[in-house]
Structures are given as structure tokens and as C-alpha cells.
């Protein structure tokens, strides 16, 4: 059941949960389930793991809601819990998959959607393959979640400076990987930037769907 007041902030909903409202927590689940699932799936590459970890994170958040300080933002707190659940998971199962990111129904032109999805999927698969857990998390929280460095630092329990260093190293690594792999070229209209998706990550069936880039 969804709350009728969508204008309530996450922090207010968390405060109501602390007071015993399960409905308030369910609203938080509605707001964050897709975000957490995407974050976990992008890193693990497994639907089952992503489901389990998303569920684990929400249960941990519900159990520990009394520790949340409503004076602070809810998102970094929740991502921090999720990240720790992922760390525990990776201790048992290291990252080793190139499964593409899950798809989403979109009413636009299928070729445009496919091209966008290709870029999105490939860049994060490359990140998953190349970056450390911390680098990946920092990069995801910055570019996908649009969190400011201060909140990323809180979510990762690191200093702002450390997060900036992580982001810098993550970008440098990704850049090296992108420049090293020249097998596929996808002209994608990102401000005139062409994106070459990594060979190993590109499904054979979609090769003909996007024009090749000719410098």
C-alpha cells in the first residue's frame, strides 16, 4: 500500500518508521527498490544475487532504523547498508560475469532505445570488469545516483578526499580500458563522442543495429 503523501521526504518517512509505521517504510521501499536493485545488479551481474541483496539491505535497514539519524539524508544511509551487504556477498562470491544489464520497456523507437541501452550497459559492464568494489560504488553513486561527494563519502564511510581519489582512479582506469579496446565503434551522439563498446561485452546479435564509427 502506497502513502497518499508523496511530498513526504525520505527522512520524514524514516522518522515515521522509527515511530512504528510499516506503511512509511513500505513507501521507502517503493522509492528505493529499483535504485538498489540496479546498483546491486550492475555490480553482481546476477538477477538472483541482486534480488537477495536488495531484500537483505531493506531488511537490515528496517531492523536498524532506530540507528538512522533523521537529521541526515536517508539515501546515503541506505546505500551504505546495501554496500556492506554487497561486501559480505563478495567475500563469498567474487565478481565474474559479463551478463548484460536487465532491460526496460520503453515506448520510443526501438533502435534508439537499443543504442542507448547498449552504451549504458557496456560502460557499466566495463566498469564492473575493470574497477574495484570501492571504485565501482563511488562511480555508480556519482553518475547513476547523482549523489554529491559528501553523501557518497557518508554512504561509503570514507572521507570526501578519499572519494575524490577513488573517482579519479576509476575514471583513469576506465579511460585506459576504453582506449585499449578498439574493436567496436558505436557512433552515439554523446556530444559528438563516439563510444567503442568493448569487444567481449558486445552481443553478436546487435552488431548491425548501430552504425560503425569512422573517424
Amino acid at each position: 500500500m502506497r502513502l497518499e503523501s508523496p511530498e513526504l521526504s525520505d527522512e520524514e518517512l524514516a522518522r515515521q518508521t522509527q515511530a512504528g509505521s510499516l506503511v512509511a517504510f513500505e513507501e521507502l521501499v517503493y522509492r528505493y527498490e529499483a535504485r538498489l536493485y540496479r546498483f546491486v545488479f550492475a555490480r553482481t551481474g546476477h538477477d538472483t544475487d541482486a534480488r537477495d541483496l536488495t531484500q537483505t539491505a531493506f531488511v537490515a535497514a528496517y531492523r536498524g532504523i532506530s540507528r538512522f539519524n533523521p537529521q541526515r539524508r536517508f539515501a546515503p544511509w541506505l546505500f551504505s547498508i546495501t554496500r556492506h551487504a554487497m561486501i559480505d556477498h563478495f567475500r563469498a562470491t567474487p565478481v565474474a560475469t559479463d551478463e548484460p544489464l536487465p532491460t526496460l520497456l520503453d515506448p520510443r523507437d526501438p533502435s534508439v532505445v537499443l543504442a542507448e541501452r547498449e552504451t549504458h550497459s557496456a560502460i557499466w559492464q566495463l566498469a564492473r570488469r575493470t574497477l574495484t568494489n570501492d571504485q565501482f560504488a563511488a562511480l555508480w553513486l556519482k553518475y547513476e545516483e547523482d549523489l554529491p561527494v559528501k553523501d557518497i563519502a557518508r554512504a561509503m564511510r570514507k572521507t570526501g578526499l578519499h572519494v575524490k581519489v577513488l573517482l579519479h582512479r576509476a575514471r583513469q582506469k576506465l579511460l585506459r580500458e576504453l582506449n585499449a579496446d578498439r574493436a567496436f565503434v558505436v557512433s552515439h551522439g554523446v556530444g559528438g563522442v563516439a563510444f567503442r563498446s568493448p569487444t567481449a561485452l558486445r552481443p553478436e546479435t546487435t552488431r548491425g543495429c548501430v552504425p560503425d564509427y569512422k573517424p
Partner: peptide, 26 residues
């Protein structure tokens, strides 16, 4: 630009029964 653009790309949707599973566990 690539990373910023990826934010505007179609977002993956979670499985439809995920919400129910989460709330049952909660």
C-alpha cells in the same frame, strides 16, 4: 560525457515481484 549520458539512458526495471518479496521479509 559518456557517464553522464548513461544516467539519462533507459533504466533497468526490477523484477515485478521484488517488492512483494521485500515486504514479506520485512
Amino acid at each position: 560525457q559518456l557517464l553522464s549520458k548513461s544516467r539519462q539512458a533507459p533504466r533497468a526495471s526490477p523484477p515485478v515481484d521484488l517488492h512483494g518479496d521485500i515486504m514479506r521479509a520485512v
